[in-house]
Design a protein around this nucleic acid. Structure first.
Lengths: 185, 185
DNA sequence: CTGTAATTTCAGAAATTACTGAAAATACAG
DNA sequence: CTGTATTTTCAGTAATTTCTGAAATTACAG
């Protein structure tokens, strides 16, 4: 017996559908993923289609997309021919995957495009100015990327410690501040 | 005489158009913004329409959207009736605005939806499990948001110092690590 | 005011994206 | 193999989003 969609669960699924459509992911794929995350048991494509009222083929396409994002796990149950899908049990695992995939799809191509354009010699003052901006964008994006890469290295345990520390995250950054101001000299 | 679109500048504009369409922003708005960022001088809507080959009304709508994101500055040139638009000169300023706006539009509503749903008493084991996942999502998102808020506080100068430090960013995070492992005891 | 330059609005056309049902492909038990 | 359960593909349709031109509005110089 798969997860029963109560109004509360429904509300959450709908919300992530709407939000998903503000990211690259479309509404129905967002809903499917919310359902998988909230479900304590793996689900088959048919479960999802029935629970959300989508066509079986739409669910198949959605799952294919979620697989391309590496956000779902496919598994088989002995004695059952159907394919069961589930989301990672660990929310931080999911977030790390999302961050990494988005970097691959959005950041990396931009960095390499910018690098390519910056190889050209500027042929006019306009081009010189434009390249200056491109260099700034490149450096900023590269730095932010480095940063998130470091954060992604944190394992779930260490992340939980951070969570428990709560507000004192500010202190970590204060320390960094001090370090920065001494490094200046 | 407004900025002249050379092939190099064109390539950058087209790239950001494509990338823009992977975010919420649509292709033409992305192109418009790239043009504004790369232009050393403020531009009128007519300049933009001519440079990119869009209809005047499309440019008007696009600028309206960019204004709603607080990504452009409107200014008047004495003796000229037209309205001139420009992007902030500081790339970090732009990035901070983007981060903040996205938080407002995507993160904050999600946090408050999750909080609302978590107020309900779970009425079944499925609901109990679902709420557990929702709580984890909530806490994780809240923590990441706190983090980026701190980073956003950095002013441009301090950011430049960080940029200059380059790879040694890792060291900052190592320090944090050490601190964390001592805080554990 | 009046006239004109500039901008915005908006209904509908064009383009894109999402979704479905039917058919094809695949997987596997017997 | 054969037959059946399951999944995938894909052409066509539906829905949504984007874009345009014409009309309305606004801003301001004289």
């Amino acid at each position: 017996m798969p997860i029963l969609i109560t109004p509360m669960i429904q509300a959450c699924i709908l919300h992530f559908g709407e939000m998903g459509s503000r990211w690259g992911i479309n509404r129905t794929v967002g809903q499917m993923y919310a359902l998988l995350v909230l479900s304590p048991e793996p689900l088959t494509a048919d479960h999802i289609a029935e629970a959300l009222g989508f066509s079986r083929s739409n669910v198949s396409m959605g799952l294919k997309e979620l697989q391309s994002w590496e956000l779902v796990r496919l598994q088989h149950i002995p004695g059952d021919r159907k394919e069961y899908y589930s989301a990672p049990a660990d929310v931080w695992e999911i977030a790390k995957t999302l961050i990494e995939q988005r970097r691959k799809r959005e950041i990396d191509p931009t960095l390499s495009t910018l690098r390519g354009l910056l190889m050209n010699k500027p042929a006019s003052p306009d081009e010189q100015y434009a390249q200056q901006r491109m260099q700034e964008m490149h450096d900023l994006i590269e730095m932010l990327t480095l940063w998130t890469t470091e954060i992604q290295r944190l394992d779930t345990d260490r992340l939980h410690k951070l969570l428990k520390l709560g507000n004192s995250i500010g202190k970590v950054l204060d320390m960094k501040d001090k370090w920065l101001s001494t490094a200046k000299h």
